[in-house]
Design a protein around this nucleic acid. Structure first.
Lengths: 312, 312
DNA sequence: ACTTCACTTTGTCCAGGACAGATGCAGACC
DNA sequence: GGTCTGCATCTGTCCTGGACAAAGTGAAGT
């Protein structure tokens, strides 16, 4: 005599729209519009007529979000079934796995075994072995990419990603603190704009630049634009470094960078990087903003900055 | 022949509703409802008929938000003018200023002068002088409260608060790493729920408990409830420590804690603390959840936990 | 190739309404 | 006095259905 939810005419197992929107990083309005325009998602309703999203639909939405972040268009993606979505993802992903004999693989295993002390020790050892710059290039960045990929494919839990972020963040901050000069040049302010919560990229850049004599001030994430302008003024910064992950809405990058450019005045340079910038249409050309697609670009730019300063 | 915005019949200087809502931590729906119910805010409209909030109204909304976070009711607060709001805030605030001869005052000055290296050095010295536990109780917590108070009164910029957070966070994480035992008991998982981005409190607790032999795993902020349950299961944690700042919506604390309690099963304890818990109505009694109003409660609870374990 | 321009797509905002859960208060009861 | 109970009010979130600007697309013209 089992009585399931579907027997009652109501699908009451699932998550409310507010939770789904927050977890996916989409607005409630947008979820409703997709439902009206593309027929998906198609949540059940609770006794009060409110949308209730089954877990399966939330999972599919996560795949959709990932493809949209990679630059595909909603009409091509949102109506697709699970199989088609996975096929699209396989097309997208360059299957550049980390070398099996490299340092990434064993650390990844430690993370999956949740052996936090061992993971931290291993990372620390790698840092000491090759120095900060090599550590960032050969360990931190590939490992972060591997973790991100594994997470988005459901092979890694959210908490495992958090464990990694905590560990690598602590190491990098300490590394930066050790090599940082109190009076170096240029002075670089590093942060992200509102709605961008991923700050690891900033640490990579801060490590690279600090190692080479720049004086980096890391402000963490989600700094309002007027506030960035104020810091730059107060601290007499030469450069503002911004990071955009691929989750950051593409359409906003151009507009917000222009806004910041306007508020900063002529002097300070703006350097922007991260996955969101790499996905950007090249049509977005911004005067007075340098776009980086790789961490090496930042080093090149730093060298050039120093040369120009020496000449001027 | 100056032509101001008001001449044109449109008030076009200000922020759109989306930005205001995000910056204040309020929903767009709520801003519109306040406007309809209480007559405030009363934004201008741009050429397209969209709300445009002048800076002055955003500032007043910030005062309002602060009073609501302290537990006042919207009908008493939202319609008030600036003067009345400031009066209410003065009633609220216990003017417990830091002792002038204590360690807080000079560090606060360093922060206001943006002398980051000196601030970090000073904090480091305090940590070495008295040890981790005294540092947390006598320096980190009072300083954090002072910074928060100064920020909410507009005496400190957002970026100055971020600078402080970065500095104190790095010190605490290192301190925790140094005293942490790989095999201590109890095992504590520390995190915050979604929508709660303030994680400093977790570091305070982690420092206290690690110092006394517990094994703390700090997962950072905004961990979904099912994910917390998974960590606890995988890591065989004895205790889940949660932090709620006063910004976290009070109404949600009870419901989410009950939800977590249900998903955790019988074994693990739940400890919750932070400004949000302190403001909570005592009517919210939760079985199987321990509420802390002070950092000392955590220490007491740890001692008691160890006793019970020894007996059992 | 490279602009121009009309057309389509897409995310956000709007109005006004409904309602559940919390909060506060008056009165009953111990 | 203290505590409970029921009721009215308050308050945040969700609903529908519509409008529109900015970004993206593609075809035609230079």
């Amino acid at each position: 005599m089992a009585r399931t939810n579907s027997d009652s005419g109501l699908d009451v197992t699932g998550l409310p729209i507010g939770v789904v929107a927050r977890d996916l990083g989409l607005s409630q309005d947008l979820l409703r519009k997709w439902e009206a325009r593309y027929g998906f998602p198609e949540p059940g309703r609770n006794a009060h007529g409110e949308r209730v999203y089954p877990q399966a639909q939330v999972d599919r939405l996560r795949l959709i979000k990932r493809l949209l972040d990679a630059g595909l268009r909603p009409a091509h993606v949102v109506p697709q079934g699970d199989a088609a979505l996975r096929a699209l993802i396989n097309e997208q992903a360059p299957p550049s796995l980390p070398a099996e004999d490299g340092p990434i693989e064993p650390m990844f295993d430690l993370l999956r075994e949740h052996d936090v002390p061992a993971l931290e020790a291993r990372l620390q050892a790698e840092l000491l072995r090759g120095g900060l710059e090599a550590f960032v290039r050969d360990v931190a960045i590939p490992m972060t990419e591997a973790v991100g990929r594994a997470w988005s494919q459901g092979e890694l839990d959210v908490f495992e990603e958090h464990i990694y972020t905590e560990a690598i963040g602590r190491l990098l901050r300490n590394g930066i603190a050790e090599v940082s000069h109190a009076r170096g040049r240029p002075r670089v302010v590093l942060t992200t704009l509102p709605d961008e919560r991923h700050g690891l990229g900033l640490l990579f850049v801060a490590a690279m630049l600090s190692q080479r004599g720049a004086r980096c001030l890391s402000l963490g994430t989600e700094m309002p634009i007027p506030e960035i302008a104020r810091v730059v003024r107060v601290m007499h910064a030469d450069i503002v470094g911004l990071s955009f992950s691929s989750v950051y809405p593409h359409r906003l990058i151009g507009a917000t960078l222009r806004e910041l450019r306007g508020q900063l005045g002529e002097g300070p340079e703006i350097w922007a990087g991260g996955g969101g910038v790499a996905n950007l249409q090249h049509s977005v050309r911004l005067r007075g903003v340098r776009l980086f697609t790789s961490i090496d670009d930042a080093q090149v730019a730093l060298t050039r900055w120093s040369e120009v300063q020496a000449q001027g």
